[in-house]
Nucleic acid binder design. Structure first.
Length: 309
DNA sequence: AAGACGAAAGTGGTTGA
DNA sequence: TCAACAACTTTCGTCTT
């Protein structure tokens, strides 16, 4: 299925303007023409399994058939422990080879327990990832990245002492930024049990200890998603994009909430292109208040000499 | 009546001593 | 660790369409 889609993409031409460049709006599964904004394909549905398996055993274990496995029972009740007393069943001390063998077995057993606890953690975490990704419309690529980040965090023991949900939310947040489809901390916090504050902490930890380089969220990247949400015409979202580009050149955007900038740009573009949205609608879409939209928009209008406003 | 505007006070996060 | 600070929010009264 995947290859088919990719082949079609290669020689795709926009029926509206004949353009050949397309912008992927992964949050909605939409693809839009870069020059006129026409939405070409909507609703790519991911029909593949949300997990990956490399061996038959793994596949069998994860297929959703067969008796349910409870993740709430540690080791599914099958664990055995080897004591460190180094004595046999009748209490005699072990000697020589036996002793060494027992020591090795114990070591491996401990390792396997540690390993299985990671797997348990991961299976909970990946379920959380699925939930977050589908509720937030996160692309498959970003999802993979999030899962990769989480695994790294797990092996580096960063999850210890923090909630799985918070860490996973942080991983998703970072992954989205890396894929140029930023979500806001508030959006994550709405879907997660964790608070915005906790997620923020996790994000900082992840970036610091995994040495991730994460692009700063830019207002530009917010446009496609918001445009889709507000059903803007193509020309309007393009106009908004150029306004933001101008604003960046003039250095007005530094230190400002990208949501506010994007909102203001869209508001202005709406007026200029006769495709108006109310401040309230926009404010809701970009998660800032109307007041912020107003402030940014007045600032933009003044600094960019947009006299028609 | 809905939308836009702006003042004033409050909040959470960053910075620099 | 604390205070200062900028950006943003909340709230609310007023003006405009």
């Amino acid at each position: 299925m995947g290859s088919l889609v990719r082949e079609n993409e290669k020689d795709m031409v926009c029926p509206e303007c004949g353009g050949t460049n397309f912008q992927q709006d992964t949050s909605r599964g939409e693809k839009a023409c870069s020059s006129c904004g026409l939405v070409i394909t909507a609703h790519h549905i991911d029909q593949s399994a949300e997990w990956r398996a490399f061996t038959k055993e793994e596949k069998d274990a994860r297929a959703r058939t067969g008796a349910p496995m409870s993740l709430l029972i540690p080791d599914k009740g099958l664990s055995t422990t080897i004591s460190r007393s180094m004595r046999d069943a009748s209490g005699r001390a072990l000697k020589g080879n036996n002793r060494a063998a027992m020591y090795r077995m114990r070591k491996w057993q401990i390792r396997s327990i540690a390993h299985s606890s990671e797997i348990r953690n991961l299976s909970i975490a990946l379920r959380e990832l699925d939930r977050l990704a589908s509720n937030l419309g996160v692309s498959r690529d970003a999802k993979d990245t999030a899962s990769f980040i989480y695994r790294k965090a797990l092996t580096k023991r960063l999850v210890r002492g923090r909630s799985i949900e918070g860490m996973m939310s942080g991983a998703v947040y970072i992954a989205c930024r890396m894929h140029q489809t930023p979500r806001q901390l508030d959006e994550l916090a709405d879907e997660s049990i964790s608070t915005r504050r906790e997620i923020g902490k996790c994000v900082r930890q992840l970036i610091r200890y995994l040495n991730l380089k994460v692009p700063i969220p830019s207002a530009t990247n917010l446009i496609p998603r918001v445009a889709a949400e507000l059903k803007l015409e193509g020309k309007t979202s393009i106009r908004a994009g150029t306004i933001i580009a101008d604003a960046k050149k003039n250095g007005i955007t530094a230190g400002k909430d990208p949501g506010g900038i994007a909102g203001a740009a869209i508001y202005i573009a709406g007026i200029l292109e006769e495709d108006r949205r109310t401040q309230r609608e926009i404010a809701e879409a970009v998660n800032v208040t109307e007041v912020t939209i107003r402030n940014r928009y007045k600032e933009l209008a003044r600094r960019l000499n947009l006299s028609t406003l």
